[in-house]
C-alpha cells in the first residue's frame, strides 16, 4: 500500500480511473438518457481534437484567456505589493475590493457586451476582471508579510522606494504571489468557460451548449472532460513552475478558490 502510493502521479491516475469506472457503472445501472457511459463519450475526444473548427475555437479561447491573464498580472501584482507596504494604499483599495468581491465577474458579460460588442474585447475584459482580485489579494498578503528588517537593510544600502519594491519586496513575496497566480489561472479558465456559456457566440463554452442543443450528449461530456483536463493540466503545470521558482520556500497550504 505505502509503496504503491509513494510512486508520484500514480494515486491521481488511479483516482481518474476510479472516477471513470464510477461514471460508467452509473450510466449502465441507472440508464439515465442524459448520461451516456464513459466508454461512449471518451471516444469523442479524439474526434473533437482533430476537428479543425473546434480546434480553432479552442485556440481562440485560450488566446483570450492568456491576454486577460497577462494583463491582470501586470496590473494586479504591483497594486498588491504597494498595498502591502503602504497603509494608505491598503486603506484606499480594501473597501473597494470588498464591494467588488461578491460580484460574479462573468455576470458582467451581458453589460460589457452591450458596450464592447460580442467580440474578443468583452471576453478578454471579463477574464481580466475575474483574475484581478485574487492576484491583488495574494500579492498584498505576500508583501505585507515581508520582514521589516529586510527593508531597513535595503534602505541602508541606499535603495529608493521603487527599487525596494522591485528588488526586495517582489522576490520575498514571490511564493505567496505564485499561489495567487495559480488560483488566478484556474479562475481564468473558469471565467472563460462561463462567459462563453453566457454569451453563446464562440469558444469552448459555446461548443458545449451547441452540442447540448443538438442533442449530441456524447460530445457534451467529451467537452466537459476536455475542460476538466485543461484545469488539471494548468494546475499541475503551474505547480511544476512554482517548485522551480520558489523551491526554497515551504510548500504553502493553499486553499483553492474556485469560480468567478
Amino acid at each position: 500500500m505505502t509503496r504503491l502510493t509513494s510512486i508520484p502521479g500514480l494515486p491521481p491516475l488511479l483516482a481518474c480511473l476510479g472516477i471513470l469506472v464510477v461514471w460508467e457503472l452509473l450510466a449502465r445501472w441507472y440508464g439515465l438518457n442524459g448520461l451516456p457511459p464513459a466508454s461512449q463519450a471518451l471516444p469523442q475526444i479524439p474526434h473533437i481534437l482533430s476537428d479543425k473548427e473546434s480546434l480553432i475555437d479552442m485556440g481562440e479561447s485560450l488566446r483570450r484567456m492568456a491576454i486577460g491573464y497577462g494583463l491582470a498580472l501586470l496590473i494586479a501584482v504591483p497594486i498588491g505589493l504597494w498595498m502591502g507596504r503602504s497603509r494608505y494604499a491598503a486603506a484606499f483599495f480594501n473597501p473597494l475590493m470588498m464591494v467588488i468581491y461578491p460580484v460574479p465577474k462573468a455576470a458582467l458579460m451581458p453589460i460589457i457586451m452591450l458596450w464592447l460588442g460580442v467580440g474578443d474585447a468583452s471576453k478578454t475584459l471579463v477574464i481580466f476582471l475575474g483574475v484581478t482580485l485574487p492576484l491583488i489579494y495574494h500579492s498584498y498578503q505576500g508583501s505585507r508579510a515581508v520582514e521589516e528588517k529586510l527593508l531597513w537593510s535595503a534602505s541602508a544600502m541606499g535603495l529608493g522606494g521603487f527599487a525596494r519594491l522591485w528588488r526586495v519586496v517582489l522576490p520575498a513575496a514571490l511564493p505567496e504571489i505564485l499561489v495567487g497566480c495559480k488560483t488566478g489561472l484556474v479562475l481564468a479558465l473558469i471565467t472563460m468557460v462561463t462567459s462563453e456559456m453566457i454569451a453563446r457566440q464562440a469558444g469552448i463554452g459555446n461548443i458545449v451548449f451547441v452540442s447540448l442543443d443538438l442533442g449530441a450528449y456524447d460530445t457534451v461530456y467529451a467537452m466537459i472532460v476536455i475542460i476538466g483536463m485543461l484545469g488539471i493540466l494548468f494546475d499541475v503545470g503551474f505547480e511544476v513552475l512554482r517548485r522551480r521558482l520558489v523551491g526554497w520556500a515551504d510548500s504553502p497550504h493553499t486553499i483553492m478558490v474556485g469560480s468567478a
Partner: peptide, 17 residues
C-alpha cells in the same frame, strides 16, 4: 487532487441533463 482544479461550471450542462 484530480477534481479540485476542474472548473466545476463545466459540469453544469451535465447536471442539467
Amino acid at each position: 487532487r484530480v477534481l479540485a482544479p476542474v472548473p466545476k461550471i463545466a459540469l453544469y450542462p451535465a447536471l442539467t441533463l
